[in-house]
């Protein structure tokens, strides 16, 4: 299991005078599921890209500690440490269209690990779809392949960027449950970006709320509801209502 430490101070886009992220300091504990909610354009995806090393992080501090507190992270791109510890599920499934489902997962594995694929596909309910191309699958199935690909490398840290957007409600619900099952089973540390508060309440141990850009953390809430939770259950809806009564503009990135 892995712990993530993030300390970002004034992150600018290249050739821009305006900071996109002003001040973000948080830690994600080993095995914790943290959801990040913020208004559009507040830099949620930028934050994930910085954590993953896709975005330049020079001058910022992003590091990982393993549970035994062995430190490998650095101040730069942050992911050049242990092999295969980071999984990323993007807004779009981002599968290689010229590779079959099985080949897409093989791509991220070494040949000695190929035996895992069939079991993994069965776990995500695609056990007879290994030979299909992504274009032959529905949107929900493609997301499942991208989940299987992420879990194939047994990630210690999993980043998700609004992965269930634009899916119909029952499919999204099934995939949320699948994600939760896999994360609990493997003890994965998760950072999940979403704009859907009820989704965050259903999944997360803690929710971080971000302000408009240049972003700061405006509020953090521990979701102290027992698990397993229900999608739009009474307790979940009550928890959400209480939060929004206390902070009516929270989803707009304000706590006034």
């Amino acid at each position: 299991m892995i712990e993530l430490n993030v300390a970002i101070n004034n992150k600018y886009y290249p050739n821009s005078q305006q900071a996109v992220l002003a001040q973000l300091d948080f830690t994600v504990k080993p095995g914790e599921f943290v959801a990040i909610i913020g208004p559009s354009g507040c830099g949620k995806s930028t934050l994930l890209n910085m954590i993953s090393g896709l975005e330049d992080c020079s001058g910022q501090h992003i590091s990982y500690n393993e549970r035994a507190s062995q430190k490998y992270g650095a101040n730069d791109s942050g992911v050049n440490n242990q092999s295969h510890q980071l999984g990323y599920i993007f807004q779009q499934p981002r599968l290689m269209p010229w590779l079959t489902v099985k080949e897409n997962i093989e791509l991220v594995l070494s040949p000695s690990q190929y035996h895992k694929i069939d079991g993994l596909l069965a776990q995500v309910g695609l056990d007879n779809k290994g030979g299909y191309f992504p274009s032959q699958l529905s949107g929900g199935m493609q997301r499942r392949v991208s989940i299987a690909r992420a879990f194939a490398i047994n990630p210690q840290l999993l980043l998700l960027d609004e992965p269930f957007n634009s899916l119909d409600a029952p499919t999204a619900a099934r995939l949320r449950q699948l994600l939760l099952d896999l994360c609990i089973q493997r003890g994965t540390t998760v950072v999940f970006v979403t704009h859907d508060l009820s989704e965050a309440i259903y999944l997360a141990d803690r929710i971080i709320f971000m302000s408009h850009s240049p972003s700061t953390i405006v509020h953090q809430a521990i979701v102290d509801l027992p698990k397993p939770r229900k999608e739009s259950g009474v307790a979940e809806l009550k928890w959400q209502a209480q939060l929004l009564v206390k902070y009516p503009h929270l989803l707009a990135g304000r706590i006034d």
Binding site: S52, L54, G87, R94, M96, L99, L107, R149, I153
Partner: peptide
Amino acid sequence: KDLLAVAKIYKLSATKTFFSV
């Protein structure tokens, strides 16, 4: 570039990234 980002995230070797992505 989104597909190249996948290759980077999953730490594909330069050869694999070139020939498969």
